[in-house]
């Protein structure tokens, strides 16, 4: 790993974190429960990307394992939401 690539990886990780900050807004006030859940899923996949980038930007290589676990398990809450928790009109279309 040479120096310029590590710098670039950290820069891209910072950019993805800025994206997550914007997605936090959708998670906090998206009009339906599904919109909040989609923001949470975006946090999962972007978080996987950030972890891999951090592993190359000076972090320990074990972070790749963390990213693997995150990619596997972040989807479980999405499936649980769709199958069990989204029951309908309770929070629909409020505070748009």
């Amino acid at each position: 790993m040479n120096f310029t690539s590590a710098e670039l990886a950290l820069a891209v990780a910072l950019f993805l974190l800025v994206n997550l900050g914007a997605a936090l807004w959708r998670a906090a006030r998206g009009p339906t429960p599904a919109d909040r859940m989609l923001a949470a899923l975006l946090f999962g996949s972007t978080g996987t990307g950030i972890l891999v980038l951090l592993a190359f930007a000076g972090g320990s290589p074990a972070l790749v394992d963390v990213a693997l676990t995150l990619a596997l398990l972040a989807a479980i809450s999405g499936i649980a939401f769709a199958q069990r928790a989204w029951l309908g009109k309770v929070e629909e279309d409020d505070a748009a």
Binding site: A34, M37, L38, L41, S45, A75, G78, I79, F81, A82, Q83, W86
Partner: peptide, 8 residues
Amino acid sequence: SAAVGYSI
């Protein structure tokens, strides 16, 4: 992503 997208 495919499973979650289909499911939701």
